[in-house]
């Protein structure tokens, strides 16, 4: 993968991870993961405990892991040597396990329903909008 594509993918990940807006762009189409999502779930929840920061489903916690915008190799490179302070490094974790975790994250529903479609949240949005 070229550096330019990697950078674009990384920027896209950062953008989608932090915007939180309804109008976030669709992630670029990614190649199918090579790992095993079932094994990855066990690793995610039990061995590597990614859920501690990212939630059991990758949707809660900080930061969210979905929608996953990084390609598999970018993801591996990142978790081995993360640029983000606070993110632990998984340099010692076997490559196959990291690919399984990636496959699991990709298998999680990548989008959440619009807040306006959830009556409770719609009510809160309406009240906040009217407040001032």
């Amino acid at each position: 993968m070229t550096h330019r594509l990697a950078l674009a993918t990384l920027l896209l990940f950062v953008t989608t991870g932090t915007a939180g807006a309804q109008s976030q762009p669709e992630p670029a189409p990614l190649a199918a993961p090579t790992g095993n999502a079932q094994r990855g779930k066990v690793l995610y929840e039990t061995t590597l405990r990614c859920y501690a920061c990212h939630g059991f489903d990758g949707q809660t916690g900080s930061p969210r892991l979905v929608p996953m915008a990084r390609a598999e190799d970018i993801f591996l490179a990142y978790v081995r040597k993360p640029a983000t302070p606070g993110m632990p490094t998984f340099a010692a974790t076997p490559e196959a396990e990291l690919r399984d975790v990636y496959a699991y994250i990709r298998s999680i529903p990548q989008a959440a329903p619009p807040a306006e479609n959830l009556p409770l949240l719609k009510g809160i949005l309406d009240r906040r909008t009217k407040a001032n």
């Binding site: 915007a19 939180g20 807006a21 309804q22 939630g55 059991f56 489903d57 949707q59 809660t60 969210r64 979905v66 959440a112 329903p113 619009p114 807040a115 959830l118 409770l120 949240l121 809160i124 949005l125 906040r128 909008t129 001032n132």
Partner: peptide, 27 residues
């Protein structure tokens, strides 16, 4: 206002998750 509305919208992530999401508990 934009920041606050977006923050409220963020509560939709993991809305039906089990274990229960914190924003769901509070909403």
């Amino acid at each position: 206002k934009e920041v606050q509305l977006n923050a409220i919208r963020d509560a939709r992530y993991g809305w039906d998750a089990s274990p229960v999401s914190v924003p769901r508990i509070i909403a």
